[in-house]
């Protein structure tokens, strides 16, 4: 039987999940340092308990540990996200007005995201940035797929209301 204690299995779990663990904590609290610490902490715990955690359970184990680590401990900070391709695209055919308008929109989206409740923001960003399926997010958060759909729906609705200024 595959064992998490075997180094090649453990390192592949690390490769597949460390970035998502990092993002997951970052989306929640907006603190890169804490997110990095959470990655270390979660994998140390997994390593220490590698005999008890099966490879299939390792993923949800990691998110549970990372989540519990800062439960009620730190206050959420502002989540800063970057936009891809905005400046790197040298052949920019868009008008300056459009670029300006786009920037303004992104600013609004940023603010709206930060105003979201932590669980809606985390769910929304895990889906939009990390491309996680609802079922995967549900597993990470330990809730039903339906609950994740609800969070997504509410997140979108709130974001639009904020941005449209309702």
């Amino acid at each position: 039987m595959a064992n998490v204690c075997e180094e090649h299995i453990f390192s592949s779990i690390f490769k597949d999940n460390s970035k998502t663990v990092f993002n997951y904590i970052y989306y929640k609290f907006g603190n890169e340092e804490k997110a990095s610490d959470a990655v270390q902490e979660a994998f140390v715990k997994l390593w220490e308990n590698c005999t008890k955690v099966s490879p299939e359970k390792a993923k949800s184990y990691l998110y549970t540990v990372a989540n519990n680590l800062y439960l009620n401990v730190i206050k959420a900070e502002k989540v800063r996200l970057k936009y891809a391709d905005l400046h790197s695209n040298s052949i920019n055919r868009e008008s300056p007005e459009y670029v300006l308008e786009e920037k303004q929109f992104q600013k609004k989206l940023d603010d709206a995201l930060n105003a979201l409740p932590e669980n809606q923001r985390t769910t929304f960003l895990l889906n939009r940035i990390d491309g996680k399926k609802y079922s995967e997010i549900a597993e990470m958060e330990g809730v039903s797929v339906k609950a994740i759909e609800k969070r997504m729906h509410l997140a979108l609705k709130t974001l639009r209301e904020q941005i449209d200024g309702i």
């Binding site: 970035k19 989306y27 996200l81 891809a84």
Partner: peptide
């Protein structure tokens, strides 16, 4: 509006995460 949010949020990126560095940190410690 929704269309625009979906589009813009699709272009979002999380802060850089250096997996190799994290792995080495972990390895050194463990």
């Amino acid at each position: 509006s929704y269309q625009r949010i979906a589009e813009a949020s699709g272009k979002l990126e999380a802060p850089d995460f250096n997996m190799d560095k994290a792995w080495n940190t972990f390895k050194d410690g463990r």
